[in-house]
Amino acid sequence: MADIDDIDPNELDPNTIRFNGHELGVVTDLPGGVCRLVLKPVHQRYSTLTKLVDKHGGTVIDIERTASEVEEEIIRLVGREQETTGGEIPEPSGGQRYEVAGNTYPIRKALKQIGFRWDAEEEIWYTWDPEKWDQVFGPVIAIQQTNRRIKIPKCITPSLIPSSTPEGRYRISTDGACISNPGPGGWAAVIVHDGEVRRIMGRVDDTTNNRMELWAIGEALSEIPSDSEVEIRSDSRYAIKIASGEWNASENRALVEAVRRQVDRHEVEWTKVEGHSGDPENEEADDLAEAAVRGFPEGRSYCPDAI
């Protein structure tokens, strides 16, 4: 390939590649059927161009094609990418790529909302925007992390994008799980308050799924100050109807009374959510409850009187 240092600049005819008002770079024909593509930092908006830079180890790329062919291909690639992403293109960050390993449905849903992109070859989510990275790195519980990469295990799926909650109000997502039913059980709650997220969970050796659903509500309400304004979000119609007093309890009466005492301490709004529908906080509560049953991480164990 030709060395550009040996070429008279006056003999070159550079062409600027433009797309949607952005100057993506400059492409120049060199002798011998080669062109030189020099991409500008705005290339980081497009994953196809970013992969090209990664493959060639830099933004100066010599290609055995004509400049017009390369320009046409670049515009085709970024045009297709914009069309498939609906225009939601990550902003550049100066060249640092941030990566998240984890691919459960709630993780995919949350990262897409933030603006992360999926790298099918590496099987990771990534962004070039440090602000998007901070949205993940702040609230997430990570088992493995480095300077610009974190791994999110399935059992502790993060609630990355809590929906808005009025200041001072608590939003609590609860869930329960049980093996064999009856058998070993687990409960969990994700508590969101003034932008902060807290997670609690526990394990009971011999119980039922309904008991764990109720237990999660009682434990979560016991964790917050009296007279709080609270939204309880659960995928269990039984737990909501029983805890709220709408249905009478024919079983688990000691536990029901303990839970209702906690309900009476607060101003509670009840929300029934669909289980396994992609709601990030409900999915996380489910994962944590399942993890509690398995003893990972080690759960707490209570009797009803502790609620």
Rank of each mutant, 00 (worst) to 15 (best):
I4K: 15
P9A: 05
P9H: 05
D13G: 04
N15Q: 15
I17N: 13
F19T: 00
E23V: 01
L24V: 08
L24A: 14
D29V: 02
P41S: 07
Y46M: 10
L49F: 08
L49Y: 09
D54W: 14
D54Y: 01
K55Y: 09
H56T: 06
G57L: 13
T59H: 09
V60S: 10
V60P: 04
I61D: 07
D62M: 04
A67W: 06
I74V: 15
I75Q: 13
R76H: 11
V78P: 14
Q82I: 04
Q82G: 14
E83L: 13
T85D: 07
T85Y: 10
I89P: 09
P92E: 07
G95C: 11
G95F: 05
R97F: 03
R97H: 05
A101T: 05
G102C: 00
T104Y: 01
T104M: 00
R117F: 03
E122L: 00
E122R: 12
E123N: 07
W125F: 13
T127E: 02
T127Q: 04
K132A: 13
W133F: 07
D134Q: 15
Q135W: 13
F137A: 15
P139N: 09
A142T: 10
A142N: 11
I143F: 13
Q144V: 00
I152C: 01
K154C: 05
K154N: 06
K154I: 00
S159T: 00
L160H: 12
P162F: 03
P162S: 12
S163K: 12
S164F: 10
G168I: 08
G168C: 13
R169H: 07
R171Y: 06
I172K: 01
T174W: 03
D175Y: 09
C178K: 14
N181E: 02
G183P: 08
G186E: 00
W187N: 10
V190T: 14
R198T: 05
V204W: 07
V204G: 11
E213Q: 09
L214K: 12
I217L: 02
G218C: 05
E219T: 01
A220Q: 11
L221C: 07
E223V: 00
E231I: 01
R233G: 00
R237D: 03
Y238C: 11
A243M: 07
S244F: 01
W247E: 10
S250Q: 12
N252Q: 06
V256C: 11
R261E: 14
V263W: 11
E267V: 03
E269T: 02
E269N: 09
T271K: 02
V273Q: 01
E274Y: 04
H276G: 00
P280G: 01
P280K: 01
E281L: 04
E283F: 03
A285Q: 02
A289R: 11
E290N: 12
A291K: 03
R294K: 12
R294M: 06
G295R: 07
G295A: 11
G295Y: 05
G295K: 03
P297Y: 06
G299W: 08
R300Q: 09
I307Y: 08
I307P: 08
